[in-house]
Design a protein around this nucleic acid. Structure first.
Lengths: 148, 148
DNA sequence: TTAGATGCAAATGTTTTGCATCCCC
DNA sequence: GGGGATGCAAAACATTTGCATCTAA
């Protein structure tokens, strides 16, 4: 993801009703830049290099807030272990590895997956079951990481 | 799910290379009968009624074994909280509620979901990404439980 | 007979919380 | 100035593990 300026982050936070703090700015920047999908602990370690006073609880709280305000997505490994986070909110699917990591599925294939499910079918499920579907998640479970 | 006789369970376990113990029999029976998708703790409470000596660790260990030998499936709530378990192995999708529960999507709709994704697309993802896909999971996230 | 299963309790790993202090709006 | 955000430590929660004992095959 292309880097964001401080002003862009301020705007983004403001649009989503969040106060801008030094810690949030840092955590969001690191999350937005990262290509893998870091855990709270990994973000904490990376952030401490630049802000040695940061606490792990703040990382967790901030990630919660980002997820709730739809600036990030939480990825929960099926086998247990630490949750991972993703600042890329475009509709895309993931490969979930059995050791609890996630890899993006390329955009074209992701879109094809999502499109195939389609709003018509989701709509039928909604009316049959009397619910409002908030999000559709597709994940393909694989044994090892691609690229050995 | 229709109830299983003790002999059926013994056979099933034997086919899957598992020893039959009093505890496994009980846990599997309860899981197989249940319509919701119980947590380890819930199964433990239910099982203790019939076997007061049972330990929670055994429930966890047994569920692990059942999942590994493909006699049960583990459902991991995206928002965190206890994992849930399902002895129904037929291809079916779930509604995942934001409070960490799961509800089966009726068979016809489940099949439609699964069919739409299709082996062709999965195959293309496999070759493009150099992986072997083990399982495909679709979950539809809803805010509340259907049926209020 | 013996490899594998269990029970117990303690350990682990992850995430949350209470509360005093701090600082963005 | 005031309400939300942070840091710290402790607590909570889910799950795993070590080890002595038991038991199914």
């Amino acid at each position: 993801m292309k880097p964001l300026s401080i002003d862009q982050i301020k705007d983004l936070f403001h649009e989503h009703g969040l106060r801008t703090t030094r810690q949030r700015e840092l955590i969001y920047t690191l999350l937005h830049q990262s290509h893998d999908h870091p855990t709270a602990e990994e973000l904490f370690q990376a952030a401490r290099v630049q802000d040695s006073g940061l606490s792990l609880a703040t990382v967790y709280n901030t990630l919660d807030v980002l997820v709730e305000s739809r600036l990030a997505r939480k990825l929960t490994p099926a086998g247990g272990g630490s949750s991972r986070f993703d600042a890329d909110l475009s509709d895309h699917a993931h490969l979930a590895t059995t050791d609890g990591k996630f890899v993006d599925i390329p955009e074209d294939l992701s879109r094809e997956l999502v499109d195939r499910i389609g709003p018509d079918l989701v709509g039928r499920i909604e009316s049959r079951m009397g619910v409002k579907v908030d999000a559709v998640t597709v994940s393909l479970v694989v044994a090892g990481l691609p690229g050995h």
